[in-house]
Design a binder for these strands. Sequence first.
DNA 1: TCATAAAGTGCAAACGTTTGTGCAATCGGC
DNA 2: GCCGATTGCACAAACGTTTGCACTTTATGA
Lengths: 353, 353
Amino acid sequence: MHTFAQPGDYTMVTIKDVARVAGVSPSTVSRVVSGNPRISTETSRKVKEIMEQLGYHPNVMAKSLVSKTTQTLGILLPRPAEELFLNFFFGELIRGIVTQATRAGYDMLMTTVTSDHDELETISRLVRGSRVDGLILLSSRKNDPVIAFLQAHNFPFVLIGRSDEFPDIISIDNNNVQAAYEATNHLIAQGHERIGFVSGPPNLVVSQDRLAGYHQALKEAKLPSKQEWILEGDVLQESGFRAMSFFMSLPDRPSALVVYDDLIAFGVLRGLTELGYSVPSDMCLVSFNNIPLSELASTPISSIDIGTYQLGYTATQSLLRAVHGEPLSQNQIVIPHRLIVRESSIQPNLKRT
Amino acid sequence: MHTFAQPGDYTMVTIKDVARVAGVSPSTVSRVVSGNPRISTETSRKVKEIMEQLGYHPNVMAKSLVSKTTQTLGILLPRPAEELFLNFFFGELIRGIVTQATRAGYDMLMTTVTSDHDELETISRLVRGSRVDGLILLSSRKNDPVIAFLQAHNFPFVLIGRSDEFPDIISIDNNNVQAAYEATNHLIAQGHERIGFVSGPPNLVVSQDRLAGYHQALKEAKLPSKQEWILEGDVLQESGFRAMSFFMSLPDRPSALVVYDDLIAFGVLRGLTELGYSVPSDMCLVSFNNIPLSELASTPISSIDIGTYQLGYTATQSLLRAVHGEPLSQNQIVIPHRLIVRESSIQPNLKRT
DNA sequence: TCATAAAGTGCAAACGTTTGTGCAATCGGC
DNA sequence: GCCGATTGCACAAACGTTTGCACTTTATGA
């Protein structure tokens, strides 16, 4: 029966081995590795040759122990409930984060919280046990105790998103209010006067922001805003059907919808189709996040691209500056968004106002 | 200007601090932490109280240095080109991995390879620098040098997928041949006799496997198999349109398609619609991966659920056993799949044979 | 020619743990 | 009441690095 090498089975080649073979002291080898200028080029060349020959790789743990730096950034995954919506651009976000981290010579450590109870325990382990040099938060809740803890310990971290209770922390976000404002205005410009909104989970800041932008646009255009035109959606198909049954049965039903998320938009689209309505002639749609499938929907969905990759990339950049103690020109960075207009929001037979 | 604490700024509370306050030796504290039975309950209680009071957390680096174990598993992200298809169930896969790892007290480290050139360098750093205890590979190429390297060093790793050149390594995969066989038979059972195939990237093992299962089903049913009924697809919309233009223009065009992936199926669906055909009456579809949006397509898409979460979860389980030197009952584990039948493959007006 | 400086290298302590060994105190059996 | 075993704890070495300091050698300038 084959088993793998166990920890300790490996005959690791250490800095001492290199030193012995090269006929120098361990400290000299260390200085060669770190590129210390006080080592002669001749010695450096020789030591490097031996390192190559012996297959030497520095032991990260030993290095971290003395340098008190881990070259590792932590990433706290959202709990399952909050994860659903993230899932579809999670990969893209991670790609942005890991790319920038790798480029800077950092590794990424992922952890998740299993229950509310051990939440701070998990963070403590990373922070106080000096496991990571900084932390990226992928989501935040109202009065998030994680943020409070990190701030109390003055530990470097960035939030992808926004927090009302902690406005000064480093955070990377879209301007979701503005984005929703533009999305709504786009519909208004098409001549729509009755515009509804299908929101996401009401406790998410981003969902609230988009709703606010929608309201703002309506108000500025002096268009009616009705409570019954605002519904909460989720990704499930029945929900889309139910929501649309409700909307379409209203005496003064909306002629266009701003939808919180592409996944919900898919449900909405499908619900409308099942009810015998068509998009965009009976109902126009504009949505958010611009997932790759948006353009492949039965009616391609107009969507706000939020620059997911850039969100992750920039977050990591900011975090690294914070870790290195470099000043940030601004603590809150806004990633630009872009409305991608597709068929779902273009209604040929409606005149522009 | 506010800056964060720098490495070293933190006054870490160490095992010695606890020992001093508790009036015992550091070794006793260490044994309390590790639950050594030779410590009296009284001492243990007292030490734990002090630890709590002082907010002590063991330094992971120091611990790793002596124990030669990192309590960390590495995960090698596929290079961007191979990542595209993974993206949509990437989140789900990661969730399976991280959940199981966390439960076992392990952290997950993510790295990516930036270029072919530094590929082995990256792995070496992790493996020889004893950064991780084991590695999860998310994809493999033909004659993958990474696998060769890990095997040569007898380092614990698992592959999510399959490798022809290294059949004995620990791997977790679906039976994609069987899955495609069943998908095809499902169409055959509906009475279809001309069945086409839209494949994925031809260099991926999974793509080849699914094609093989398709061929096998046709052969067993003694149905015709034509070269021109097999096309390579990608996720782009134009590709779906082009592929369908081609198929539909054939004198003996297929009446049903097995499609490599849900994303491609969306493109195919859209291409057919644009050409004025409808699914399932003009063309039936069955696809793979069962992403959440499959059921929300204009015609809900029949799809093979591959148990993505379980794939990640099981991979981590196997890896942990390997890391601990525990025997595996089998090195290759197959995660069961399940055909989810939806409208896209049910053609009412076609009689069952 | 002799201090003086500069360059190159080695020594040893330190980082925060774990763990083998040794020693003192307590216990049980006779 | 003595001896051997058991229990509970402390000592110190070790893990693989980094780095301040000291030391030797060579070059420089008067």
